[in-house]
Structures are given as C-alpha cells and as structure tokens.
Amino acid sequence: MDRGLVAAFLFLGGVFMHIPDGFLEAKTWLTTAAVSTGILGYSVMKTKQELNDRQIPKLGVMAAFIFAAQMINFPVVGGTSGHLLGAALATILLGPWSASLVLATVLIIQCLVFQDGGLTALGANILNMAIIGTFVAQVVYRPLSKLLSKLTSRKWPVALASFIASWLSVVVASGAAAVELALSNRIPLEVGLPAMLGVHALIGIGEGVITAAVVLAVWQVGFSPSRLEKGGAYSE
C-alpha cells in the first residue's frame, strides 16, 4: 500500500474526529460553526418541546457514560486506536434532538476542560459527531429496526439495527471531517477521504458492538426510552 495512505491512516486514526485548533482554515471553521449553531438552536427548541424535567437525569447519565466511554481507546490496526463516538447510542435511546444536545455538551466539555478538540474546530466537531453522526443514526436506525422486526423476534432486530446505524454514523462523520480537512487544504480529499473512511470502517465495528451491547443491556434493566421520545428503541 502507498506509504502516504498508510501514513494518513495512522495520523487520522490518532486524531479520530476531534479536530484540534490550527488544522482548519478560518473559512472552514467559521462556516461549520455557523451551521452547527443554527442546527443546535433548533435541537434546543425541539428538546424544550419534547422533554419533561423528570427525564433530565437520563440525559445526564447518557452524557456521563459517553464521556467515560470516549476515554477508552481500543486498538484497531496498525498502531491505530479508536473510541466510542456514542452518537448512535444516544440517538437510539433518547431520540435525535436530545442526542445532539448530549453529544454537543460532551464535546464542549472535552474541548474546554480537557483540550480534546480545538475551540476553533468545535463547530466542525459538533457538526461531524453531534449532528451528522446523530442524523445518520436516526435515518438508518428507525426504518431498519422496523423492517427487521417484521422478519424475526424482537431482540435481534434492535441489536442488528443498532450495529449498522452506529457503524454508518461513525463512517459518515469521519468522511465529513475529511471534507473539512480538504477544504482547509490540509490533506487532499482523494487521499484523506479513503483514509478516513477506511480506518473508521474498522473503528465503526467497535462502535457497533458496543452500541448494540449497551442498547441490549439497557433494555435488560428495563430502561424505557419510549417515555423519552417516540421512535426510541422500545417505543412500540
């Protein structure tokens, strides 16, 4: 394999999707910040409409768990590691609007308190992980789990749909990061995109396994997201 491609694999795998300050040019981070602000504003509005104050601790726990899980890097391949993103997990259990707020809060705290992801890149990181990751999970999970549940018993459709939705959410989010890096003239898209998609196709397997396992475990203890949001895993 081309040495540059291998190098890009290692590099982008290490960065994951928490883009640091300095990697994005002003036009890229200003644009992504504006887009993210707009969409998050809408998420806030929808969450205000849908959320009951008794449900707040559930979102708190989801955010706390995603924060903790994102610290745990698992080895992937070739000296690269990855960690849970959690966008699909939050989307499946809480619905997309609450999930995007939960993810954005985690990213803001990681940026400000732990220097994980740059402040100028925060808009891009929120767009990739909290918005695009959540959106992909939502549009994939709901129809897929419905379709699969027609074919077989109730547990496996949820697990399989969780796996596929979370795998795709990670891969698409990483593609968005590659586009932003290309727009900032850091790495050409024809190199960055296959590298990002390739390594995250592997990281996504870990994401899928963890997401499916946690969704099933949460189901086991009787957590009922149907009361949080119509379209959660157990709403039917």
Binding site: F11, F23, N73, S81, Q115, G118, R186
Partner: peptide, 29 residues
Amino acid sequence: ASAFPDGLERVAEDYGFLQTATGQEVVNS
C-alpha cells in the same frame, strides 16, 4: 486505554502540517 499512535506527530510532519496545530490552542484547559 490504548495510547494514541506514535505515528501521529511523524505523519503530521510527513504532510507538513504538524506545525499548524502546535501552540495553536485557543484555550488553556
């Protein structure tokens, strides 16, 4: 947790944009 790949700095150097992130942190966490 698995450590980030040591390849990070070397590769950013290969692509010549390692210096674009060094010292660029906007906030002191």
